[in-house]
């Protein structure tokens, strides 16, 4: 119950605008993918957006040509190393705490101010991805807070109903969170073994005729007919290590090759993101 501490608006629940489905252009809003299957969208990354924090970064995935289709916009701030709360037990290394929060206006459905399960999910995956990259024992007895605000989710506004796309949107969001958090951590000057970046690959089916599904990197759910499976990889390029792997979908267990190649494509996407990350960080010292 956070009711008393916020302004809650009318007592009766309000409805999101219901759009006129009879509009002619609605018949086929599903755009098709214009990028080649192994190309990621353009990333924009900037550090130092929150001067009051120890480190911060902002990430934007460029919107595709089609208007109304939103790109991901994330802002991340890092606070620490700082003293652990009094109640915390002794820790010989740094304690990570990650928070991922959607802004109320980030998605089609208005988000509340309390964290929901998907946000907690993202937070946990982000923590695992980063924990593998940080040299934790350099900072005994201390904690670091990593806060990612999702200013705009990776979602199509025009499709009025959600086709169960949220799960796949979360994959893209997580990969963005990992990259932006890595930039903010580097900005804060916290020791890392490598620059970790996220990448997504998905197994998609574009036609209904039962043709073989194909693998696409950095998928936009609304551009594909159906997504069978997707995975988000957090990858350390110099070490050639995966710190977090999140796989969702439906893939026959027998087909190990397909699985490996899906992860391989995820790593490919992560390498692309890493290049942007490195450019961005080199810019700050140069």
């Amino acid at each position: 119950m956070n009711d008393r501490r916020r302004i809650n608006g009318p007592a009766g629940a309000t409805l999101a605008p219901f759009f006129d489905d009879a509009a002619p252009q609605d018949l086929d809003t599903r755009s098709t993918r214009s990028r080649p299957p192994n190309a990621t969208r353009k990333l924009l990354l900037k550090t130092g957006v929150t001067p009051s924090a120890s480190g911060s970064a902002y990430l934007e995935i460029e919107t595709s040509a089609k208007p109304g289709l939103s790109g991901l916009k994330l802002s991340c701030s890092v606070h620490g190393p700082r003293a652990l709360p009094k109640s915390a037990p002794f820790s010989p290394h740094i304690v990570l705490s990650t928070h991922v929060k959607y802004a109320p206006f980030a998605t089609q459905q208005r988000r509340g101010y309390l964290r929901d399960s998907s946000e907690r999910d993202l937070g946990i995956h982000l923590e695992t991805a980063l924990r593998g990259a940080i040299i934790a024992d350099r900072w005994p007895k201390s904690g670091v807070d990593i806060i990612v605000s999702i200013i705009e989710g990776d979602q199509d506004r025009e499709t009025s109903k959600l086709q169960g796309d949220e799960v796949w949107d979360m994959m893209n969001t997580l990969s963005g969170c990992i990259t932006v958090a890595a930039a903010a951590l580097a900005d804060a000057g916290i020791d890392c073994v490598d620059t970790v970046a996220g990448g997504v690959a998905a197994l998609v089916q574009d036609a209904d005729d039962g043709s073989a599904p194909s693998i696409a990197v950095d998928p936009i759910p609304s551009e594909h007919k159906r997504i069978l499976a997707a995975c988000c990889v957090a990858y350390l390029p110099t070490r050639d290590e995966v710190t977090n792997l999140w796989f969702r979908g439906d893939l026959p267990a027998s087909d190990l090759d397909l699985y490996t190649s899906l992860v391989g494509h995820g790593i490919q996407a992560s390498k692309n993101a890493n290049r942007v990350l490195i450019d961005c960080l080199s810019g700050t010292v140069g």
Binding site: I135, D191, C192, V193, T238, T284, V285
Partner: peptide, 13 residues
């Protein structure tokens, strides 16, 4: 930091 008998950077700078 040290990794596999090589020195790697752990910060930007």
């Amino acid at each position: 930091h040290l990794h596999e008998s090589n020195l790697h950077a752990s910060l930007v700078g």
